[in-house]
Design a protein around this nucleic acid. Structure first.
Lengths: 104, 104
DNA sequence: ACTTACGGTAAGCAAACACTTACAATAATT
DNA sequence: AATTATTGTAAGTGTTTGCTTACCGTAAGT
């Protein structure tokens, strides 16, 4: 599957966006991520896997703790992809509007 | 559901992104959108409904044709939302890196 | 050594999703 | 008026998804 698809899908789920936003504040262990969320700890583990595969977060193991944090590279890549995506969409939109104007 | 969720989900499906990208070139009737895609025409109708509800496209009826086109407003809104989203993520990332550096 | 805490994964389940075919409504064509 | 073309929607189906509980491995604390 394309990079964009996995990233879109990863952030399309509200629980995963909640996790992502939690990690914006600081890197956290799985228990701390799960704490306060409305789903079980294993569910969080599964979501973390999805976010990791979408390259939006990374993990480093410290002793028995898995500390997750945002993946700067992945986020930059996604932002760049989307910038072009919107850019293309809006540019074509503009171009088309001009042509329509011309043919009046 | 929040605006961002519906938009993320809308673009998380590859068929819908294919439709969206087709509409980047020009406004199209449903038959023309379905033409060349690997799914049936009613499936396309359903996808169009999702994209419309995500405010990514609009439609205008011309006789018996429903012409769909990109929704500039919605796309701009989504882009702005995401700009801030990435901005926040990256800024916090940077801030945290600096604090970690300071406490060395 | 034993226990406790952390966290990934397997199995199972209900809800959501992406599709299909069948149908109905409307507008253009003849 | 009858037919054809365009489109949305309903009903049904298989797959995917998001969740749960149960379980297992590993590392730290006692």
């Amino acid at each position: 599957m394309s990079t964009s698809s996995t990233a879109f899908k990863a952030l399309g789920d509200s629980t995963r966006r909640a996790i992502f936003e939690k990690l914006q504040e600081r890197p956290l262990a799985v228990v701390d991520i799960a704490n306060g969320l409305h789903v079980s700890r294993p569910a969080v583990s599964q979501h973390l896997k999805v976010l990791k595969e979408a390259k939006l977060i990374t993990l480093k193991t410290v002793g028995n703790n898995n500390i997750y944090e945002l993946n700067r590279e992945g986020i930059l890549a996604m932002r760049n992809y989307l910038d072009r995506f919107w850019e293309d969409a809006l540019m074509n939109f503009k171009k088309l509007a001009e042509e329509t104007e011309k043919n009046k």
